[in-house]
Structures are given as C-alpha cells and as structure tokens.
Design a binder for these strands. Structure first.
Lengths: 193, 193
DNA sequence: GTCTATATAGTGATAGAC
DNA sequence: GTCTATCACTATATAGAC
C-alpha cells in the first residue's frame, strides 16, 4: 500500500474532476493539468483510465468507511448516528447543489456506461445501506431494518438530485427536517422512552 | 413543424440511446447505425450534436406534457392523478432498473457537463413540479402545495436512483406504496370525507 | 520519475458526387 | 435525401530520451 505523493495527488485530482465533470468527460489531460504533470508521466502512475477509476472508487469507499466509523464512535444512540448521515445533505450542500451526490451520480453514470467498475461503485452505496441497516437494527427495527435503511438512503438520493436541479436550499432544509422527524418517529415507536 | 420520417427516426433513436448510454457517450455513429443511415446523411438532418440534444429534450418535454394531460382528463380527483404519476415507477420499472429515470439522469449529466441545454432539460423536471403543485393546490394544500410537489418528485427520483443501483423490485413496490399512502394522508387531511 | 514525441482510433463536422 | 471521402481535433495509450 505504498502511495507516492504524486500518485496520491493524481487520485485526489481525479476524484474531484470525476465528481464535478463526470468520469466519461474527464480526460487524462484534465487530470494531468490539475496536478501539473505531463500526460506521459501520468502513465507511469496509472496505465489505463480504468485503473485510476478503480483507485478513485477505493479512495471514496475508504473515506466513507472512515466517516461512518467516526459517527459510530461519536455517539451511542443509533438515531443520532443516522441523523449525522442525513445531515451531510446540509454539510455538503454547496457541492451537492453544484454536482449532486458523489456516490449516486457515479453509480448512475457507470451503470449507463456499463463499465466494469460499476459493481465496485455500487459497493459504496451498499456500504451506506448496510451501515444504516445496522443502525435501525440497533434501534430494534428487526426485520424492517433494511427497508428503513433503503428508505432513508433513497430519500436522501432524491433530495440530492432535486437539489442539483433546482438549487433550492430551502427545499433541502425542509426535506432534511422531514427525514430526521421520520427517524425520530421510527425510533420512538420501537423504544418509547 | 414539418418532421420528415427520417428526422423523426433519428430523434427516437437518439432519445433511446441518450437514455441507455448517456448523452456524452453516445456518438453520431451510434445514432446513425441505429437508424441505418450514414454519418454523412445524418448531418443533413442535424448540423450539430447540440441540435439533436435539443430535439430530444423537446420530444421528451412534449411526451410528458401529453402524458400529464392524459391523466388530467382521466380523473377528476387530484389524489388519483398524483397516484398515476407515482405509479410510473412501477409501469416503467424494467427500464428504470436498467437506466434510471430518463429525466433525472439527463438533468444530472447535463449539469455536470455544464451544457447549454441543461436549463431546457431542467424544464422537464419543472413541468413535473408545476403539475404536481397544481394537483396539491386542487387538494387544498394552499401554500404547502409546491413543497408537497417537490417532496413527491424528489422521493420518486430517489427511488429511481436506488432501483438502478440495487435492481430491487420489492424495494420499488414498497416505496411506491409508501408514497401513495403519504398522498392519501395529505389528501384526507385537507378534505376529510 | 519525469519529460517529449508519436502511434492509433474515434470524434464532430464539411464537401461534393449521385 | 443519401452516400463516400475527407478534415481537424482529441482521446487513450506507448516508446524512448533524460
């Protein structure tokens, strides 16, 4: 797992560019320019475009795993952990309004390209689903835990999509409040305090 | 508004291909091949790629306007009209699982490309929003009508996104039921029968 | 590790014959 | 209206000098 500084720079730049422009529309030249290296040098670090896509997906997956672990350690209450997840719609609002959800837009694009890496990208969405499922299970939702997880995940994805289309911050705030209220309702149904 | 048969064929093929592969990844060669004409002939009908994108967006917009009008004429009850809208997630399930929502994925892609036509594409989403707003207004939701419209629209977009990612028909069915139940609740709150 | 040059294939787009 | 031939450009990718 040796990562040279240049390699890491390339991954970071590609991550940003794939998010802002999409994978298909980002060329090696774009990435090389962002890192201020030549196209030729680029190929020393990554032989193919698929190779760098894979590296970007792995970085994103790893970043999200770290984030989820942080939330796991931050609170003992599953409901407030889920709330952390939902609130990324607010925290990352500016970028989401500009480019949508980094995970949702990538999975959508790779599915259309029918790219080999699409299953790997879907894995990030699955990570969210499984983590959320765990939280709802801890809340005592039992067999409904995964359905609840998908509900929150899908709802968030929809908010991200419309946020990008209509650039409406009030809408985002409203929906986030509604999701949080829904989580509270579920939480109080299973553990009436 | 003269539309030659070939021109119409091209628009239909481009519509399908833009949906299945995305706009950026669809070449003139792809479209020409689908219609069985030469690339050269293609340029007789459309001078630029933007021109055909515009034609496709206009077709999609027009198709949706027709669909909404059909629903308007089909029922007097705004709640069941909204139900028609939500149920397209079931009706078009196979394609949505394969390619996502034709409207949502196009707006997302054009936003990333920062393409001139992005506002035009957003207009289709706005058409849905405004039509839904009208239905909720007819339901007596007053000032909340547009918020309700965006709620249903965003929710549906999220379901489409996850449907494509996880290919889970049971999830789609479950969420559609939940949206319909939500609409019923809103409807009964304003007009308790 | 980084560069310049180059090979190869595909893209959007044009010209002109039929 | 449809075709073939062609142009200019950009893309991924490689070879080899430094």
């Amino acid at each position: 797992m040796k990562t040279s500084p240049t390699r890491q720079q390339i991954i970071n730049a590609a991550d940003e560019l794939f998010y802002a422009q999409g994978f298909g529309e980002t060329s090696f030249a774009d990435i090389a320019k962002a890192v201020s290296i030549s196209r030729g040098n680029f190929y020393y670090h990554f032989r193919t475009k698929d190779e760098i896509l894979n590296a970007v997906i792995e970085k994103r997956l790893s970043d999200r795993e770290t984030l989820l672990r942080t939330w796991d350690e931050m609170s003992e209450d599953p409901a407030s952990r889920v709330a952390c997840f939902v609130r990324i719609l607010i925290v990352n609002q500016t970028k989401i309004i500009a480019y949508g959800c980094p995970v949702g837009t990538l999975t959508t694009e790779l599915a259309k390209l029918d790219h080999d890496a699409k299953h790997k990208a879907n894995g990030i969405m699955a990570l969210f689903r499984d983590w959320l499922t765990g939280q709802f299970r801890d809340l005592g939702c039992g067999a409904e835990a995964e359905a609840h997880a998908l509900h929150v995940l899908g709802w968030s994805q929809g908010v991200a999509t419309l946020a990008q289309t209509f650039k409406d911050e009030a809408y985002v705030a409203r929906e986030v409040d509604q999701i949080l209220a829904w989580v509270d309702r579920v939480s109080q149904k299973t553990r009436p305090s």
